[in-house]
């Protein structure tokens, strides 16, 4: 039911393995390791695109009204920073995601524990959640506005709803996927049911929970983008919609860049958490 959620490798995972096409390609590079060793080569293409983009804008090939030149985007970012507007909208957005994620983690983890640790819980909880997760939850926006108005509540609720599912699905699968052989060992060691859950089931499920958390964070930012473009008066999404009204494509680009950086930073944060919480895994497998 949720296997497909688990089997999707997070981006970049293939580079870490010691087998497969990634490792083969790496071995082919032994003869030309200079740029690779400095880690600079991966920046070459993005940098080239930026230079081409700036050149196209400066020469008039790209109309500034449709696509602002990179330097104009940087200037807009600087102005927004200096005026304090960027920090204000950013903190509003961060708070919304943090609140929504906190609710999603609490709800998703509670539901997964209840469903994962008892048959009754599974029968009561799993069917409605499996049905609900097939619903494109962003389609609930009109309903949420009718229910919760246009304040903070519908935005946080949208983030929370979307992020709950990956937490629930992955943690539930992780709990049910605990190795039966280790469960047997726990029985021969005389562990109680509580001891079994604490020492075997939950640690076994932790990697799955963290995978779920990474997906949840991705969905949280996506939900926020949608939530903030409807009836918002603050937040990064509002900043972008407001800029649209004044044809300020440079500010829209700043908003996009901020979203990208936020997504990247939160993903890195979970990776750091994984490295710490899953220190028992051999280095090659961390991040898988």
């Amino acid at each position: 039911m949720s296997e497909q959620v688990l089997n999707v490798a997070p981006p970049g995972a293939w580079r870490r393995g010691s087998t497969g096409i990634g490792a083969w390609l790496r071995r082919q590079e032994v003869s030309a390791p200079r740029l690779r060793g400095l880690g600079l080569r991966r920046f070459a293409t993005p940098l080239g695109i930026l230079i081409l983009w700036q050149a196209a804008s400066s020469s008039g090939v790209l109309p500034a009204r449709a696509v602002p030149p990179p330097l104009a985007v940087v200037a807009a970012a600087r102005d927004l920073l200096l005026s304090g507007a960027l920090i204000h909208h950013l903190s509003v957005s961060l708070l919304r995601v943090a609140a929504g994620l906190a609710i999603a983690i609490a709800a998703g983890a509670s539901l997964a524990l209840a469903a994962g640790l008892s048959r009754l819980g599974e029968d009561l909880i799993d069917p409605p959640l499996q049905m609900a997760r097939t619903l494109p939850f962003l389609a609930l926006v009109p309903l949420f506005i009718l229910w919760f108005g246009i304040g903070e509540t519908p935005k946080v609720a949208l983030v929370a709803l979307g992020a709950t599912f990956p937490i629930y699905l992955n943690l539930f699968a992780g709990i049910r996927g605990a190795d039966p052989k280790l469960v047997e060992v726990a029985a021969t060691l005389g562990l109680s049911r509580a001891g079994l859950i604490r020492h075997v089931v939950l640690p076994a499920a932790l990697p799955h929970f963290l995978t779920g958390l990474r997906y949840a964070i991705g969905i949280a930012w996506l939900s926020l983008v949608v939530g903030e473009q409807i009836n918002a008066d603050s937040g990064i999404g509002y900043l972008m919609m407001d800029a649209r009204d004044f044809l300020r494509t440079d500010i829209i680009m700043v908003g996009l860049a901020v979203y990208a950086l936020l997504g990247l930073a939160s993903d890195q944060a979970v990776r750091a958490l994984e490295r710490k919480a899953l220190a028992w895994r051999p280095a090659a497998r961390v991040g898988r």
């Binding site: 052989k181 280790l182 047997e184 060992v185 726990a186 021969t188 060691l189 005389g190 562990l191 001891g195 020492h199 075997v200 640690p203 076994a204 932790l206 899953l278 028992w280 895994r281």
Partner: peptide, 24 residues
């Protein structure tokens, strides 16, 4: 008092060696 040694070591990978030995 009985104890079992299985064909596979069946250690909890998330517990250090001594914690595995001391489990329970």
């Amino acid at each position: 008092k009985r104890a079992v040694v299985f064909q596979e070591p069946r250690l909890m990978p998330w517990k250090r060696v001594w914690e595995n030995v001391a489990l329970g």
